[in-house]
Simulated assay, not measured.
Amino acid sequence: MTIASALRPEVLATGLDAFLVRFALTPEPAAMTAARRLADQLESRAPEGVCEIAAALVSVFVRFDAALTDRAGLKAWLETLAQQTAQGPLEMPEPSRRWTIPVAFGAGEGPQLAEVAGALGLGEEAAVAQICAADLRVLTIGFAPGQPYIGLMPEPWNLPRMAQLNPSVPAGALVVAVRQFVLFGAESATGWQQVGRAAFRTFRPERQPPMPLQGGDAIRFARATSDEIAALADSPDPMGGAKLEVLR
């Protein structure tokens, strides 16, 4: 359970037809959990007129149709719901879906695994074991189409971003910083450290749906060899070996 005492939610006007419910200015674990819980509540019982709900790491964007709802009334309702959420209990809601995604770790697929493991005071094998044993969630999707921010790892994994930007990591790169992972759907620059690579792609416009991951999805990483990832990338499997389990 995360601690809710420091959370001070705000409901901020965003243009004429939207509000931003914000729990913090920085990515605190409690605020991330609160945002995910609020998004789940809104998605399950949104008031009439709410037409878009988009969760970020510590906030939730809520857009409404002004012809179908009362702006002041919706703001008051969101303020009450946000305060109730901030008071806890702050545990991640039970996931409705779980993904298992094969990843090759270390060597050419994760060139900074040794550096990450050293910062944790672990060997590479122990660091990979912790990653694969972690019960992770898609905290939000953003920055690029379908790109997930996945967390949270235990507190020792609160690793800083690199001082120098890595100008390019490949599609499928699994990178880590600040207790979170990002799984890149395309080649990208990053300030996070690459520990592995998957054949799974988080965005393919020709696939239905083009962005398979959803906020709140449970994630497990399964260790694979570099050859297995290469074979999955060349196979007709559109999911690169990733398996989806519907839990409820």
Rank of each mutant, 00 (worst) to 15 (best):
I219L: 11
A218T: 10
T100L: 09
F143W: 12
R63T: 04
L139E: 12
E28H: 12
L20E: 07
G172Y: 00
M1P: 14
L68V: 03
Q84I: 06
D237R: 15
R248D: 11
G106Q: 06
A6Q: 14
A199N: 06
L38D: 01
T80H: 07
Q180M: 03
V176Y: 01
V116R: 08
G118D: 15
P9M: 07
V128M: 10
A56E: 02
I219V: 15
A72Y: 09
Q214V: 08
K243G: 03
M211F: 02
F200M: 14
Q41V: 04
A39E: 03
D217A: 13
A134I: 08
R161I: 00
D234Y: 07
A144N: 03
A199T: 10
R204K: 13
R98N: 02
D65F: 05
M92D: 12
V182R: 07
I229W: 07
E124M: 10
P148L: 00
Q83G: 13
I150T: 06
L16Y: 03
T225I: 05
A31N: 11
D70F: 01
F203M: 12
A67Y: 14
E187F: 02
V103I: 15
Q87A: 15
A54N: 11
Q214I: 04
R179H: 03
A55D: 03
D217H: 10
W77Q: 14
A230P: 12
P210F: 00
A13Y: 03
R161D: 00
T225H: 09
Q41F: 01
F221N: 06
P156F: 01
G146N: 08
Q84K: 13
R22E: 09
P89M: 14
G142L: 02
G49S: 09
F184N: 09
A186Q: 08
A127Q: 08
A133I: 09
S96I: 11
I219A: 11
G108I: 10
L42A: 02
P148H: 02
T69Q: 06
